[in-house]
Design a binder for these strands. Structure first.
Lengths: 188, 188
DNA sequence: GAGGTCGCTTGATCTGGGTCAAGAACGCTT
DNA sequence: AAGCGTTCTTGACCCAGATCAAGCGACCTC
């Protein structure tokens, strides 16, 4: 669980007694390739940090899948939107590779928020960071042509191309697999 | 400043001594029609609550303006992205009508976060709500055709059509003013 | 109230990317 | 290693929405 403490302490410092209270709340969860971590329509009760593996989050509508993002490294995973709002989720989160996540139940997190002010602050800082990432992505969607978005993604996460199906990257970049395929052969 | 206390207490309760500390941090700011509240490239030092008036937030790129949203009612205004990240802003916020905003300096807000745990929690809840709104908007962008997005906006904020130029609504709905004009005459 | 700017409309034309379709290549499963 | 499903590629065609252009008001300034 060092991963968790490191993750949290990138934002706020915890005393040892505080950590003693935080630590037992986190549990490890394993998912096989293709397995779902969050299901659309269900209220998400856990938030996760990725230990290893890659997951995709997507929205499904009329049989079309719209990929909103990937999780890997030590980032967040799970349907954070449903988790904070405690409303039926509008996204699916699926393991694209065999994955190990470390998760906390909402009820436990709320208790930590009440008992440890640093954790409340940590919650704020995490969401503030999330919102900045969303803004960056929205700007890129608005202003960059498809090819440039692809180049930036390649630069930012070169390994992603090896890890996830191209159709998901195409969807994430807001284009069809056909267009993406043509773009790649053109750019390469 | 009752507006502020009401706004805050929709999320967390404050004791009277706490409010006595919070209240003097907020000041009223007035903007003429067309005036800028936040400028791209500058670090935003204040967060605002709208007392009255309408503002638009937009991103400029190659001379094109992309409207990201409007603020009115008792909602937030200002470049929250730059405010939380304390990085040069990527958005402009402009008063579309004469506006009165109530604002707090970041340094004051941070002090309140340190001294009053309820305020830290309030900061978290505010951003959690923001992020849910963004998710909703992103889903609408992805799944709804232009016409349906227009209908929803009409339904959600019918007064907006009277308050802001149609070109801004067109931009918000991600289409050109020409397309928007044709769509309106078709739908009406 | 004359002139100018800006916003809105309407028409004609163009095009990036989507759709449909078919084949090739890869990687599961048995 | 054979068989099947999924993913990727390539080609032909199509269309929603962008672009270009022109005209009309409404509003503001001088």
């Amino acid at each position: 669980m060092d991963l968790v403490r490191t993750s949290i302490e990138r934002y706020v410092k915890l005393t040892d007694p505080e950590w003693a209270e935080v630590e037992p709340c986190w549990k490890r969860y394993s998912f096989a390739k293709g397995e779902f971590i969050s299901h659309a329509g269900r209220v998400e009760t856990r938030a996760y940090i990725v230990e290893h593996g890659v997951q995709r989050m997507y929205h499904e509508h009329d049989g079309n899948e719209h990929c909103l993002g990937f999780a890997y490294g030590n980032s967040w995973s799970g349907d954070y939107d449903s988790f904070v709002g405690q409303r039926p989720g509008r996204f699916q989160v699926q393991a694209l590779t065999e994955s190990s996540l470390v998760g906390i139940e909402r009820i436990d997190l709320l208790r930590l928020y009440d008992r440890i002010p640093a954790m409340d602050r940590w919650g704020r800082l995490i969401v503030e960071e999330l919102i900045q990432g969303r803004a960056t992505r929205e700007i890129e969607q608005l202003t960059l042509p498809a090819e440039e978005r692809y180049r930036r993604l390649l630069k930012r996460s070169p390994h992603l191309m090896q890890l996830v199906p191209q159709k998901d990257i195409a969807s994430y970049l807001r284009m069809t697999p056909e267009t993406f395929s043509r773009l790649r052969s053109r750019v390469l």
